Amino acid sequence: ETIMEVNLLKGPKGLGFSIAGGIGNQHIPGDNSIYITKIIEGGAAQKDGRLQIGDRLLAVNNTNLQDVRHEEAVASLKNTSDMVYLKVAKP
């Protein structure tokens, strides 16, 4: 597993990826991690090219996303300014 830091500039459609996982909404049984499950065509993440489906999202800005509820992860992604710092684990 490789840890990678990505600074992503939000586009008109936001960050351009979808997530799944978290406490109460496990993407993988027994694993509370938050995973990237979709990269949106023409979105910021696709244009940047570094994020991939299956990457594990560890942090957004200063918010640690390990062992959080799905709703908390979504809220932390929404409550960001235009430049967003992401910390991901690549499988």
Rank of each mutant, 00 (worst) to 15 (best):
E1Y: 15
E1P: 03
I3V: 05
I3A: 05
I3G: 06
M4Q: 07
M4G: 05
E5P: 04
V6A: 04
N7E: 15
L8K: 00
L8F: 14
L8M: 06
L8Y: 09
L9N: 09
K10A: 03
K10V: 06
K10S: 05
G11R: 05
P12D: 14
K13C: 04
G14L: 03
G14F: 02
L15K: 01
L15M: 13
G16I: 00
G16P: 01
G16Y: 00
G16T: 00
G16D: 02
F17V: 09
F17C: 03
F17P: 00
I19M: 07
I19R: 00
I19L: 12
A20F: 05
G21I: 02
G21K: 05
G22K: 02
G22T: 02
G22R: 02
I23Q: 04
I23G: 06
G24F: 11
G24H: 13
N25G: 12
N25F: 10
Q26E: 13
H27T: 09
H27V: 04
H27A: 04
H27F: 06
I28V: 12
G30F: 04
G30V: 03
D31W: 02
D31H: 06
N32W: 04
S33H: 09
S33W: 06
I34F: 08
I34P: 02
I34E: 01
Y35C: 04
Y35V: 10
Y35I: 15
Y35F: 10
I36K: 00
T37E: 06
T37P: 01
I39A: 01
I39L: 11
I40N: 12
I40V: 13
I40A: 13
E41L: 06
E41S: 12
G42W: 07
G42K: 08
G43R: 06
G43K: 04
G43F: 04
A44Q: 13
A44G: 09
A45C: 15
A45I: 10
A45W: 00
Q46E: 13
Q46Y: 10
K47T: 15
K47N: 15
D48N: 05
G49V: 02
G49Q: 14
G49P: 07
R50E: 09
R50V: 13
R50P: 01
R50A: 10
L51D: 00
L51C: 06
Q52G: 12
I53N: 10
G54E: 05
R56M: 13
L57D: 00
L58A: 06
A59V: 13
V60A: 07
V60P: 00
N61Y: 03
N61Q: 07
N61F: 02
N62C: 05
N62I: 03
T63K: 10
N64F: 15
N64D: 15
L65V: 09
L65F: 10
Q66A: 05
D67S: 15
D67N: 13
D67P: 03
V68G: 11
R69Q: 14
H70T: 07
E71K: 04
E72H: 11
A73R: 00
A73S: 04
V74D: 12
V74Y: 10
V74S: 09
S76A: 09
L77G: 01
K78E: 10
K78Y: 11
K78V: 09
N79H: 14
N79K: 15
N79W: 09
N79R: 14
T80G: 10
S81L: 14
S81E: 09
S81H: 04
M83G: 09
M83R: 14
M83N: 15
M83W: 12
M83P: 11
M83V: 13
V84Y: 08
V84M: 06
V84K: 02
Y85K: 07
L86H: 00
L86E: 01
L86I: 04
K87D: 03
K87I: 02
K87F: 03
K87Q: 06
V88I: 14
V88Q: 00
V88D: 01
V88C: 10
V88L: 11
P91G: 10
P91L: 04
P91C: 04
